[in-house]
């Protein structure tokens, strides 16, 4: 812990000492605002039997900006350390590879969580600002953000893994977005092919969209939370091995 804390602090601070952190923060607020205002317009124009949180997050707009967040958050994590040589400086002190993987992941999760706080605040103050009946219950806000957090953790772990594969952060970003798009389209397999085949349940389990839909309706399903938490751990383990493998073969 004595060495983990300064590593986490350094990683977290690095977002704010460069324009990237501020740009991402502004980008998320802006895009979440676009999704919310589009949802409000939709609810005002059409009678939809869903709550505001559901309509906000259940849209292509949301997935477009959501998936692009992760390469931007993670692409520098290992690629830049390797390219600049600072990885060698870090790993020749008393810290171990897993310290580095864990601290980079934790710092990014904290940053990611922070990105959603203005949006939560906007939802919570909806009634006060509009003086309209609040079109959702608070539990929905909780389940949605709990699910976004768990899914985000997995996507951040995937991004860190992609960054550990290369010393070029652009390539790391492209690999990340490729993996996320692949994961996103896995969710459409049962929509396109139906669910009358043996492996359809597995595809449903991996469907990020379907789970978000449930969470936005206030359904707290532990299976996807557990699945994505385990996948996060597995991906971090893989990242740890990749970092070691790449430095040992050089």
């Amino acid at each position: 812990m004595k060495t983990l804390l300064p590593l986490i602090q350094k990683e977290f601070r690095s977002f704010w000492s460069s324009p990237l952190g501020w740009v991402l923060f502004a980008y998320t607020i802006l895009m979440e605002g676009v999704c919310l205002s589009t949802a409000m317009k939709g609810l005002a124009d059409t009678a939809i039997a869903e709550n505001l949180v559901f309509v906000t997050f259940h849209s292509p707009n949301f997935w477009f900006f959501f998936l692009f967040l992760f390469p931007l958050i993670t692409m520098r994590s290992f690629a830049e350390e390797e390219k600049s040589g600072t990885l060698e400086c870090l790993l020749t002190t008393q810290i171990e590879t897993w310290h580095l993987v864990f601290s980079k992941f934790i710092a990014r999760i904290l940053f990611y969580a922070l990105l959603w706080t203005p949006g939560v605040f906007v939802f919570l103050s909806f009634g006060n600002i509009t003086e309209l009946p609040i079109p959702f219950i608070k539990e929905v806000l909780f389940t949605t953000h709990l699910y976004l957090f768990t899914l985000g953790a997995f996507f951040i772990a995937l991004g860190c893994f992609a960054s550990s594969l290369t010393s070029n952060q652009i390539i790391a970003g492209i690999v990340t977005i490729g993996l996320l798009i692949l994961q996103y389209f896995l969710g459409f397999v049962t929509v396109i092919w139906g669910d009358q085949f043996a492996a359809s349940d597995i595809f449903k389990l991996f469907s990020a969209q379907q789970h978000l839909t449930n969470a936005c309706r206030g359904i707290l399903d532990y299976a996807p939370l557990l699945l994505f938490s385990l996948l996060t751990l597995f991906t971090l383990l893989l990242t740890n091995h990749t970092v070691n493998y790449r430095r040992w073969k050089r």
């Binding site: 000492s17 600049s84 040589g85 600072t86 400086c89 020749t92």
Partner: peptide, 12 residues
């Protein structure tokens, strides 16, 4: 240890 290219964090 000081590596050859003296890698440092530029923004610090």
């Amino acid at each position: 240890y000081m590596p050859e290219s003296v890698p440092l964090y530029e923004d610090m």
